[in-house]
């Protein structure tokens, strides 16, 4: 994969559309995943994440727009693409009569790009899986582990992981993160659909937020944060002539938000006016996420809770 030209993105969709009867699951999805990125794919349930992934894997045929995966058409060249892809579905169902170990080998052999046996053994140890048990007896987390081991025991160029850690315990979560870093260091590209924002913040270099079948925000985490206002809280006089928005004044407690480029000016003004207990809070991914879920009150509450603490929020809620 070293010879792949870096300019072509690994995944590029333009205006991708997918209808199921009257339901429009994808509505002009523009997704770009660059070579070597760990790309976070965020969105609420039913936003179209899994549908998008299934179109990218050639399981569903798009009703409009264009998609290229590894430079190929996912519907026509599905098999060629699959030779270089490892996929972990969101809901893993295994063959009940096969053991976990057999399921892993079936998947990796079908893919055809198996990692050395030592990798497989290491992964089974790290994920703490008993490969001799029949898949029927596995819990949700164990089934997920089988799919993850089968993915990381494959030497793929592109890893597509659909909410891969939803059934894992926190210990396994860290094993998972280490594996994602390992394949990323090797130069592979990862598309990680997830609900766990801390996981995305820790792993992903770029993020796309999808809602109602379209990408509503995309970029690096820093870029996205930049678009958002910083939350400011202090004790002192109410601001006059400075660009603080969403102002809440309660006695000498002041709460508001400031655009990123205005932060230095606001800080100078606060210094001149003896403000005490100044806190500036970067918007978290959760806030970005909630913002695009369209639930502004919840966003404000989340920000307020973080900025002013529990006592005040209790008062606000009871209002």
């Amino acid at each position: 994969m070293a010879d792949t030209v870096v300019e072509t993105p690994v995944i590029r969709t333009t205006g991708l559309d997918k209808r199921f009867g009257r339901v429009r699951a994808l509505a002009g999805l523009d997704l770009v995943v660059e070579q070597g990125d760990v790309h976070g794919f965020l969105g609420p349930n039913g936003a179209g994440k899994s549908t998008a992934i299934r179109v990218l894997l050639g399981m569903l045929r798009a009703t409009g727009g264009e998609a290229r995966v590894l430079g190929m058409d996912p519907w026509r060249d599905a098999v060629a693409i699959h030779r270089r892809v490892a996929y972990v579905p969101g809901d893993v169902t295994l063959w009940p009569g096969l053991t976990g170990g057999e399921a892993i080998d079936t998947i990796t052999r079908l893919r055809g790009h198996r990692a050395p046996a030592a990798d497989r053994a290491r992964l089974i140890r790290a994920f703490d899986l008993d490969p001799r048990r029949r898949s029927k007896t596995y819990s949700k987390g164990n089934r997920q582990k089988v799919a993850l081991i089968a993915a990381f025991a494959s030497e793929a160029d592109l890893y597509i992981l659909d909410e891969p850690t939803s059934g894992l315990d926190p210990l396994m979560e860290s094993v998972f993160q280490a594996e994602v870093r390992r394949v990323a260091d090797r130069g592979a590209t990862v598309l990680l659909s997830s609900h766990i924002l801390s996981e995305v913040e820790r792993l992903c270099s770029r993020v796309s937020i999808i809602r109602d079948g379209a990408v509503v925000e995309a970029g690096t985490l820093d870029e996205l944060r930049h678009l958002q206002h910083t939350v400011i809280a202090y004790r002192g006089v109410a601001p006059v002539g400075v660009p603080i928005a969403d102002l809440v004044v309660d006695g000498d407690r002041v709460l508001g938000s400031v655009a990123a480029e205005d932060v230095p000016a606001v800080l100078r003004w606060l210094g001149e006016h003896d403000a005490r207990g100044v806190t500036l809070t970067q918007p978290s991914l959760e806030e970005l996420f909630l913002r695009h879920y369209g639930d502004a009150t919840r966003v404000d509450r989340a920000r307020a809770e973080r900025a002013i603490g529990e006592r005040r929020t209790r008062g606000r809620r009871s209002r």
Binding site: L57, H82, Y87, P89, A147
Partner: peptide
């Protein structure tokens, strides 16, 4: 989802 994501 498992089988059709392989070169089958």
């Amino acid at each position: 989802e498992l089988v059709l994501a392989t070169p089958v």
